[in-house]
């Protein structure tokens, strides 16, 4: 590749572009959204790419017309291009540019509908690992009802299995986001929302809150370790056996408005997660969350417990 034919300012621009390309491929793995490791993130990525391609068609079409018009119809002496000051409409053209966007958007719309519904169902025939997530100010509490253990700011999950997160908040709203597994969902007080994700490759990933919730919110990053189901079972039973239990008293400590590092707990008290949920269902799998759950039965610790 030679830049010699280019004029000087363009030459340095081209060099910069190439440099940028090298840099970005060098750390391509850091584009976490573009490197999903599970089916949810993959489906979302496919849709993104499809939408990007359809939109690229629009951009190319518009830019071609635009640059042509700007180049050809300049107001300079001796411009030979036709000047038609009264030309104000063309039925065929105008119909055409209603149709083009409709077609392109249909191309995006159909898979959008399909994937939206698909992601709302847990994959059939697989028992999910359930994790009850409560966002606190400013930390994450993860409770594993099946394994009877709890963690703070740390997730360990088995590979190849759907993980069903049940999300609530005893804090301002946050969103749970693990970019390489898939998209985010809000945690809201007085609500439990479902989100399922899956990691197909073992590895260390990271998660974060996407919704600002106060001055310590930037400390809500957490590690996500995906391991084989066997290793997961070993880790869970070891944690259950050896880690200190989360008591109500230590739960109250967690409610303080503060940040903290990781923690593991061998057990956790009842009533720290809503027993009857009011939220929306993941269709198709007979979830026990009901849309019209009695609000009164949600149990939360009184706010007074959160004051220092």
């Amino acid at each position: 590749m030679s830049f010699k034919g280019l004029r000087k300012p363009y030459r340095s621009l081209a060099l910069a572009a190439v440099a940028a390309g090298v840099v970005s491929t060098g750390c391509g793995q850091q584009y976490v959204v573009l490197h999903p490791v599970g089916p949810v993130g993959e489906q979302e990525l496919h849709l993104m790419i499809l939408a990007a391609i359809a939109m690229a068609v629009v951009i190319v079409a518009v830019f071609t017309l635009y640059f042509y018009a700007v180049a050809r119809f300049r107001d300079k002496p001796g411009n030979a291009a036709p000047y038609r000051p009264e030309w104000h409409g063309h039925k065929l053209l105008e119909t055409l540019w209603w149709i083009i966007p409709v077609v392109l958007l249909t191309v995006i719309a159909i898979p959008t509908v399909q994937v939206t519904y698909a992601l709302d169902r847990l994959p059939k025939g697989k028992n999910p690992v359930v994790i009850d997530v409560t966002s606190l100010t400013w930390k994450w509490l993860f409770e594993y009802p099946g394994q009877h253990i709890a963690t703070v700011n740390y997730l360990e999950i088995p590979t190849g299995k759907p993980v069903l997160f049940e999300l609530t908040a005893n804090s301002p709203m946050n969103t749970l986001w693990i970019p390489q597994l898939g998209g985010m969902e809000y945690t809201m007080p007085n609500r439990v929302l479902p989100l399922w994700l899956q990691a197909d490759k073992p590895g260390m990933y990271w998660g974060d809150s996407g919704q600002y919730s106060g001055t310590g919110f930037e400390k809500m990053f957490f590690k996500v370790k995906a391991v084989s189901p066997k290793a997961f079972a070993v880790w869970a039973s070891k944690t259950h056996a050896t880690a200190t239990p989360l008591t109500l008293a230590s739960y109250h400590q967690l409610l303080k408005h503060d940040t903290m590092g990781q923690a593991l707990y061998g057990s956790y008290p009842k009533d720290t997660f809503p027993s009857i949920a009011s939220g929306f269902t993941l269709n198709g799998q007979g979830m026990y969350m009901t849309m019209h759950g009695p609000h009164g039965s949600i149990k939360y610790l009184p706010m007074s417990a959160t004051q220092k």
Binding site: L50, A52, V58, I108, W177, P179, G183
Partner: peptide
Amino acid sequence: VIGGATGVMLAAVPADYQFHNS
């Protein structure tokens, strides 16, 4: 036009799960 194009990408619901608040 580019802003509008990325807007359409955001309208593809499952893609938005990844874009939201980012």
